[in-house]
Design a protein around this nucleic acid. Structure first.
Lengths: 359, 359
DNA sequence: GGCGACGAGTGAATTGTTTCAATGAAATTG
DNA sequence: CAATTTCATTGAAACAATTCACTCGTCGCC
């Protein structure tokens, strides 16, 4: 393997000069620089980031840990975050926790070992224990799709209570009085918030909590939706509408209902969540609560970048030892909460007859 | 930041002993080991992989570069590869080239800098130039979804020619005589192979090449499909079937045809490629050429792991300097080619009337 | 009792880079 | 022309781990 010393020898300069050519070329004379650059090209030298990072103390990589890369919603979040980080010259290491607290812990440990510059995290662990444990490494992080507890870090999230309300208000307005909630794993905060919003919408319409029939699932994918739909069909008093915790589940529900000859929206209305691209292309186009995925990813990355910049400024101040200004530039953690939006499509359309009857 | 020296001081041992506790605990006495472990836990010590890797010379991370994480097909490949690598104790850094040769080059440079242990790569660059350039770093790599040129590396791919033939043979058998091919960016080998397969199927049916109307697109996503469908509708002699280079495009085509009131499969049959999960859940369930995504990811990772293992064995032999056996254990590159499979669904069903008429 | 073997632990060398004080040469100034 | 500044370059220290040749007891065996 070619190392910097080989390049230095070839170009007839010291290793320090080679390093300068790479990191601050303006300090190097033109002909020397060209000689060094030629040597680098000829030898195919690639610098070793491990040696570099050992010396400078921190890497140029962000960690991004999402719940499930199988969900296009998170893919969109990840892409936007990656693009933003990339523009700032930072690489991103994308990982999936699969909604498992233990995998989350494992990946966070990996990030800590790697001394990543910062972390963007969609927490899988409802208790916040792993996040708490991660905090002590002193690596800045931003929570995505979840409000930070105690304001001890930045976060970007979408108002899930509002989202649940939007979905269920839409259904009660159409006259539905028994609504199933296919909810996913109950340890996720999002799931609980959406239920709270759903119950609020029921209360608004003067309907009791018992009108919401909860069907929890282990996972948040299409298969879980298919499974939940089978259970739904077996219920004694069948609901007339289903609110699904995300679009993957909704697509699974739709498939199984179709196979069982249950018409959508004729016999059963469906509302999904996330508004992924495939929701509009589904067998029956899905009504869904849209979350601004790209905006979340971008904002989360921007908050993290801002925090990192602050950190560097503070470090410089420390070096100058100009205690004059004090903590004037200290980073303040921000909790950004975005609003969801209901996108109505055919899966929840009201039949004219019924609608008219209710009015 | 806590370093190994701090742990050593706390536990009252040397740094070498702490290192031994972490890397080969059996060499350390029981009480010492416990003392060190306690110190590690109390101080929250996390070892610095950069220092470690600088010393040992290689990392425990694989690089995985796919064409597009927005395509569920590649997500499936990535997940399977990641799971396999994880089982062998290796982390995976997943990146997306977005079908751009320049981004591919950038990420491969990043992998080289990181001294990743090996790389799994879905090449975006049709010329093979970036792959060729990467080869000289001496990092083992396996091509995914592409046969390696000249057998100079392992590869796992699916027979795209066969896939194209399956799709178009299915359409010609149903009586279609003018078929559009929405192809994506023509610099991708997959795209060219599928066309070749399509032409072969036409020849089989005694139809000339001009029966295949190619509609290239810049990207391979839903939006590209929508755009291509608009162009398709404007063609003078409208084809009666569309073969799409992947399912995302097919979904986009389907959406636009639906919006334009063109019935599928009544007025236009559609065949997609990949058989992603959403193909079955589409407005009209999509006929598609299934690729064994998970198997590809798993096999690719296994081939790479095998190559890495060989490398280690050779290194050991070198150390022993037992030149007796010679190159008996040298790694032999393998080209695994998997077969695609046609999954027929509603989007290409033959109307009874027409079918009868043709027979 | 002396010798070798063995187990446990030490401490210094090593890895590839960055950084910075020091050096020397050239350019500028009074 | 001496003094000072500027500029390009050098060489060695520092980063945090691993590794390995050694040391130091202790034990067993003849």
């Amino acid at each position: 393997m070619i190392v910097i010393k080989d390049v230095a020898r070839r170009a007839g300069v010291s290793v320090g000069t080679v390093s300068n050519v790479i990191n601050s070329p303006e300090r190097v004379g033109e002909d020397t620089r060209r000689r060094v650059e030629a040597a680098i090209a000829e030898l195919g030298y690639v610098r070793n980031v491990h040696a570099r990072q050992l010396r400078v103390g921190h890497s140029r990589i962000l960690g991004l840990l999402v719940l499930d890369m199988g969900n296009p919603f998170f893919v969109d979040v990840a892409r936007a975050a990656e693009r933003t980080a990339h523009r700032a010259g930072l690489g991103v290491m994308v990982c999936t926790s699969n909604q498992s607290a233990s995998e989350e812990e494992e990946y966070l440990a990996l990030f800590a070992e790697q001394r990543v510059r910062g972390v963007l995290l969609t927490p899988a662990d409802g208790s916040g224990r792993t996040v708490e444990a991660f905090r002590r490494h002193g690596i800045p992080f931003v929570l995505v799709d979840r409000v930070g507890a105690g304001g001890a870090g930045c976060s970007v999230s979408v108002d899930d209570v509002a989202g649940g309300t939007l979905a269920v208000r839409h259904l009660t307005a159409a006259g539905h009085r028994r609504i199933a909630y296919v909810s996913g794993p109950p340890h996720l905060q999002q799931i609980r918030d959406r239920r709270a919003g759903a119950l609020a919408a029921l209360a608004e319409a003067g309907i009791g909590d018992e009108a919401l029939i909860e069907l929890p699932t282990e996972t948040l994918d299409v298969a879980a939706g298919r499974d939940a739909a089978s259970r739904l069909l077996g219920l004694p008093q069948r609901p007339t509408a289903v609110f699904c915790a995300n679009d993957l589940i909704a697509l699974g529900v739709l498939q199984t209902l179709f196979a069982a000859g249950v018409g959508v929206p004729r016999d059963m209305a469906i509302v999904g969540y996330d508004d992924i691209e495939f929701a509009a292309a589904a067998a029956v186009p899905l009504t869904s609560v849209r979350q601004p995925a790209a905006a979340m990813g971008r904002l989360a990355a921007e908050l993290l970048l801002a925090e990192l910049e602050m950190e560097e400024l503070e470090l410089e101040e420390l070096e100058l030892e100009s205690a004059g200004e004090g903590g004037g530039g200290a980073h303040e953690h921000r909790q950004v909460v975005l609003q969801p939006e209901l996108v109505v499509r055919r899966s929840s359309l009201v039949r004219r007859g019924v609608s008219g009857g209710l009015l």
